[in-house]
Design a binder for these strands. Sequence first.
DNA 1: CTGAAAGCGCTAACAT
DNA 2: ATGTTAGCGCTTTCAG
Lengths: 356, 356
Amino acid sequence: MSTDASRRRDVTVADVAKAAQVSKAQAARALGNYGAVSDDVRERVLAAAEELNYRPNELARSMNTGKSNTIGVVVGDIENPHFGLATRGITDTAKKSGFNVILVNTDEDTAAEVDAVKVLLDKRVDGLIIAPASSVDTGHLESVHKSGRPLVLLDRKAPGLDVETVAVEMEGISYESTTHLIQEGHRRIAFISTIRMDEPYFAGLPLDSSQIADRRDGMKRAFEEAGLPQPEDLVRLNAGGPESIKKITRELLQQPDPATAIIASDGLIGLSVVEAIQDLGLSIPDDVSFLMYDDFAWTRLTTPPLTVIAQPVYEMGVAAADALIRQIQGRKAPAAAPEFAATLVKRGSVGPAARH
Amino acid sequence: MSTDASRRRDVTVADVAKAAQVSKAQAARALGNYGAVSDDVRERVLAAAEELNYRPNELARSMNTGKSNTIGVVVGDIENPHFGLATRGITDTAKKSGFNVILVNTDEDTAAEVDAVKVLLDKRVDGLIIAPASSVDTGHLESVHKSGRPLVLLDRKAPGLDVETVAVEMEGISYESTTHLIQEGHRRIAFISTIRMDEPYFAGLPLDSSQIADRRDGMKRAFEEAGLPQPEDLVRLNAGGPESIKKITRELLQQPDPATAIIASDGLIGLSVVEAIQDLGLSIPDDVSFLMYDDFAWTRLTTPPLTVIAQPVYEMGVAAADALIRQIQGRKAPAAAPEFAATLVKRGSVGPAARH
DNA sequence: CTGAAAGCGCTAACAT
DNA sequence: ATGTTAGCGCTTTCAG
């Protein structure tokens, strides 16, 4: 053993240079793989580095290069498999290009997001991928963008912001899904989302989330084209935890003019909705039809399997990372940005509306 | 607008100092909140900083302090909700103490893990939380530990390594679960895991993963105490993707002396096993009993709901982060390390063994 | 191709 | 309390 791992100070280029009997500059060049170095010197330096168990200090490196080879990812909830998958797409892609990922969870809270962006910027990440908690309250994103830091929005658009965005076209799929339900005879279609709003929903309420707004618009169009009245009284926001969701579900199903179909805004909500329906002793789709966003594997296991709106989440993570890295490397955007479409996967949870 | 966000160079302490008409050192002290600064100076500095839109360069800060306020987390697969939840526990806890998290995915590949550790160390993370891909091949972890960098193992132990570890006691719960199955009359109990091994399983094969080894041992003890022969021919490793798992399930169920009960090593496997069983047209638990590790919410939605082994995953993430941060801050370990126990949650997927 | 020296932005002695 | 002067470990002129 020629090395003593327990020594306090790390071994630096200076140490390696001395051991290899070259200047610090030459050692650094050989180690950092830049500049001009003779084979002889490179060999000696590398050997010395190996021997001394040298490891570069990436912080120091980042300080002068200005690049940290790190990207910041800000999402609302990694615990949600939707983001888990997207994150996987991002990290897989980042790794391929030699980037690391710092992950921050915001709990869908804009204040936390503002803070996260600050911290990440202070850490000098090379770029940011953000699933913005709000599509409206975007001052912090605006300033990131104006500062020239590469930024890509994931999953949700921010209409006022001219930033590259990777998201599914929601209005269309919402229209398609709603139309499907309408064709099955449903008129009382409920929509449940966790989106936090200060007031209960009413027709025309401006929504903080473009994603939800687009879905609402899609539903609206479907009803309009069918010449039917909007069941806007069945839109429920602020569906917090499982209990809250179950409560909402019960209300929707037991009120005077109840919902005959429920659309859940994501898989986490869907889970609780289905549970509540089962608890009520109701049958899907005989008593109530069910449809949800996100195609998780378990949706094939329920009885009946669930009709869902599948989104290419992993691919979107990949695309977001690709786009960001392209920006970081200063390459121009390809002529056509890839489009991401959701698909309505009809399984068994949607059936004809029950007769009243 | 007195600031020009598009200026190339960031504003530094020097700029702030000049604007506030104090020395760089005083400005730095006021900004960094250390040392002694008069109220007057602090005020002027903070005002100038605000005015100039100053943001500290954490990289530079980290360079002299030696602390990056960042921890590295290395897991096999964030896409797996098990790790998603654990990661949430880690990030939540880290944030509370002002730490950020760099997340690396290894695909359960030791080589990738070795690499990840290197990168993270080069980035000067203050500590590491690792769910080791192998409990045997741990040279890289050993050297991290010997170098004095705080390190906490999550989810899996490494017997040869004297490192703080947050994991569930697996032998016991495996024994308990197996016994439950035995009492229901099962003798042919299969166990399916994704663990990668070069050879197919045979009795006594040393397992690379302590977690799996412990589960195997628990099953073994259950059979021994019941005075029954071990169905070791029903242990299946290398269950890669969904298709591979389904194939294995079919084999297990259709071979001459088939399994009457199947234990899935995690929720991802469980999913495919249940799907395969349904595809075969078999009924749970009438034709085959099923039990799996991880209590995901969807396991309550299947018909019948699944009997599972619940693990306090989020809490373990929290505990791992707490322990690591404690190490980083140089505080001693509490007298008693918290114990984490899994629980057998009996729902409907285990029933009496079918008569042959 | 090589080396000396000057920073990167900040903190940490050391004086005053 | 404040300022001066060194660094942290690395990259980057700039000479040779």
